[in-house]
Amino acid sequence: MNRLALKLLLPILLLLAWELLASGSARAPRPSTVVQAAAAMTASGDLPTGLATSLLRVFLGFATASVLAVPLGIVMGSVAVVERNLDPLVESFRPIAAIALLPLIILWLGTGTQAAVAIVAYAAFFPILINTIAGVKRIEPNLMRAAYTMGVGALTRMRVVLLPAALPAILIGMRIGLGVAWTAIIAAELAVGAKAGGQGGIGQMMFVFYAYSVELNGIVVCMVAVGIVALLLDRSLRFALARAVPWSAP
């Protein structure tokens, strides 16, 4: 009980201080006005629509990245020649933040869903790839050998030994990738909203609140929504990880 009080202490104090300090100004958002704004934005459907747009983009991009990065990572992790030859490309592109590619992607794909999906896919691609490679390389060599000595064929070995052995690392890569993807879509929508007049998404909604309607409560609602979605995405992949890897000690 005492520990719970301790944990609640700072959040409650901070919220109170925020409410009191901000009540002097009419425009400054306060916890109470933010809650009202959230209710209004949910009722009008703006918030759910914005979130749904962004989430759809994230899922499309994330799925694209996974479909590309997992097989490539498995090949790079298990065939040394392929890894050696592709590693320079990976190391060259990995440090380029997805958001830095935004200007080029706007040039190539415009400002719609396609561009958003491309940004997300790029952002999620490298964490998934790197973790898949590492996971495959870290497999106990005797596990593959054990299956080999039992006469298990090469393709079956891939499916029944390599894949499950690398699965925890792959899922960790996906978890990191999904988090990065969510950040990337917010950044992209914000930047597109700021410069190119695109449409849709929670990130752009925030920018519209900033630039046109000067609605600070709306901005804070969006920020909180972004945080909650990030938390939910992370938790759901953590849950998937725990479910898919029942063999590892907790």
Partner: peptide, 15 residues
Amino acid sequence: AERGVMFQDYALFPW
């Protein structure tokens, strides 16, 4: 498959 191996580190599949 006519030669079975028991490895020093057992090589049990953790999954």
